[in-house]
Design a protein around this nucleic acid. Structure first.
Lengths: 231, 231
DNA sequence: CCTATTAATTGATATATATCAACGGGAAAT
DNA sequence: ATTTCCCGTTGATATATATCAATTAATAGG
């Protein structure tokens, strides 16, 4: 069976990375000729931590989780990978290895772009390089902020941060389907799954959110933000 | 009193950033003409978190600590700033603000380089841009690794990590002066200062290190690494 | 050199958080 | 329809770690 590309070309792609706007027509063509698509079912691994960074990844449709496989088989969820965002760990420019694993949560249409081509364009196109620097810097800043938050906030604050992340970044809505299990929510906030359950319940009992197993609704955003900020 | 530059020029500077090797003679001259030096006494702030990133910083001699001023006045020490390394937080390419504060620990001879000039050279010199990408990526990878370690290791492992950092990165020696106070060591490992004291003592009692207030000597490196890895 | 502060240390206690064990429900497989 | 298994949930308990209070050691200013 031939591989069918669902996206006809980068030029017309509506979900392409913003930074591609800095490419010349020739460069964009080069990218387009060195990409391939693949579809992943929920749970399937798209990129594996430690494997060579042969490609940069973009998601055309669907959602994935990115996570570091840490000590004693414990995972640490970094982020939810979304359409339009570059998914490329810092290892690409350090040890040429993927820094984290990316696994599909929903069905995912993925677009892989040859990293050597990508890197070559970075070398010759200053504006594109600067866009990449901005992207990597934003992620790095996010890691630092997150590290401080994880260290200095107590469980309530950390969980509030996660709930706000889903609302503000992932779904851009105060009401959403919680696509992570309680276990995974714990892997994101450094909490045991039982604690996630208990604190979600507390937040519901105090009228801050509505929560059933799969749905979250932020009822009192002000209070949730306050819990997030106060730690 | 005229400002006296202790370093006559970037071209002959023995402690300059490796990545400057990718600059042309003209670019290096441009950098040299847009830098200035200053001397800081122990405790003085060299760069303040939140202030505009008008300059990239290098340290010619001495050591500084870089830290984020977090919640409730609690600091989080990111790293020890050393000669020859670029000191530029990710905020430079995100919100044009310094991400962390840098404060002198010893007397520090600092070299500031105009960030706009720096940025302009990044745009036109691909090899230099790639060097910067590698530098920022290495720091980002370090943050991610550290975040996982802080989250998943217990106090013994975290403190072992810090002791090995000083030995492997800062002093490149198994014996060194501990330039941070117990309080600061806690700000680096996310521990209360009392716990730092207790665990240092435990490590000494079990023959892993020698420690007096100001000196640390790693006696059984194998065991210390094991404590670090086991968490 | 002496005094005022700050840092290090110690023991006792409080708190946050993880772990354990048990149970119920729903989804998927047979 | 029935079984299996994983997830969510709950309560009880264990553990790691922070905080508090008090004392001693070290350091800097006068």
């Amino acid at each position: 069976m031939p591989v069918v590309n669902l996206i006809s070309s980068c030029e017309t792609c509506t979900r392409r990375w913003n930074n591609f706007q800095h490419l010349t027509k020739e460069e964009l063509n080069l990218v387009n000729e060195n990409r391939y698509e693949a579809t992943f079912k929920p749970g399937e691994i798209i990129l594996k931590q430690g494997s060579p960074t042969s490609n940069a990844l973009f998601i055309a449709t669907g959602m994935a989780k990115t996570y570091i496989e840490g000590l004693n088989g414990k995972n640490f969820i970094i982020s939810i990978a979304l359409p339009g965002r570059l998914i490329l760990g810092p290892g690409a420019y350090v040890d040429s290895r993927h820094t984290y694993t990316v696994a599909a949560i929903t069905t995912v249409q993925a677009c892989f772009i040859n990293f050597e081509i990508f890197r070559q364009i970075v070398r010759v196109n200053g504006a594109f390089a600067e866009g990449l620097l901005e992207d990597i810097s934003a992620k790095s800043l996010g890691s630092l902020t997150r590290m401080v938050n994880l260290s200095q906030k107590k469980m309530h604050g950390r969980l509030a941060d996660a709930l706000l992340y889903f609302s503000d970044v992932v779904f851009k809505n105060d009401e959403y389907e919680m696509i992570l299990s309680r276990q995974e929510l714990g892997e994101m906030t450094n909490m045991a799954k039982e604690c996630v359950v208990r604190i979600l319940k507390e937040l519901e009992d105090s009228g801050v959110i509505y929560s059933d197993s799969s749905k979250i609704k932020i009822i009192d955003r002000g209070k949730l933000v306050q819990i997030s900020v106060k730690g």
